[in-house]
């Protein structure tokens, strides 16, 4: 597992896949993709990294307990969901806006995107957390 080629490759692959994951998550509204898929791709790459480099490097890559990821992700999703309640709208009512960036560019902002990011974080936290926890047991 810990061959040099793989290690070197992982150094390249991990950032790339993470970027790809974010890309997948963000474009998910219009093309195949989305929070789940993004999160899973990221998890796969982090998990591979974890298995290649072991616990210590992993702790450096992810210096927090995965439960923080889960917490933050779920909280994001929760806040997006609850936000409309403040305005007497049903839970999860989506909000969309075309933001004018100034030089002729507009960005289509959908509140569901934040929700999707929350999903992404939860998925990463859970799958990486599980794999990490079990790997530690194996390494013990």
């Amino acid at each position: 597992m810990t061959s040099l080629i793989l290690k070197t490759a992982m150094r390249l692959i991990v950032p790339l896949t993470l970027l790809f994951a974010v890309y997948m998550a963000l474009k998910g509204h219009n093309e195949p993709g989305g929070g789940f898929i993004g999160g899973l791709i990221a998890s796969v790459s982090i998990a591979l990294y974890r298995m290649t480099y072991g616990a210590e490097s992993f702790d450096k890559l992810l210096p927090i307990h995965p439960r923080i990821l889960v917490f933050v992700g779920l909280t994001m999703a929760f806040l997006v969901a609850v936000f409309p309640l403040l305005f007497d709208r049903p839970l999860l009512t989506s909000y969309e806006q075309y933001l004018n960036l100034g030089f002729g560019q507009t960005v289509h902002f959908v509140s569901a995107a934040i929700f999707d990011i929350g999903v992404l974080l939860v998925v990463i936290g859970v799958s990486v957390g599980m794999i990490d926890r079990l790997s530690r047991e194996v390494e013990k």
């Binding site: 998910g28 509204h29 219009n30 779920l74 969901a81 839970l91 999860l92 959908v110 569901a112 999903v119």
Partner: peptide, 23 residues
Amino acid sequence: GGGKNIVNVILVDFRGFDTLGEI
């Protein structure tokens, strides 16, 4: 729903509540 990927729109918007439960 503001998105072209229908499955994703269902997941995060139309039936976003399911997804909240799922996560």
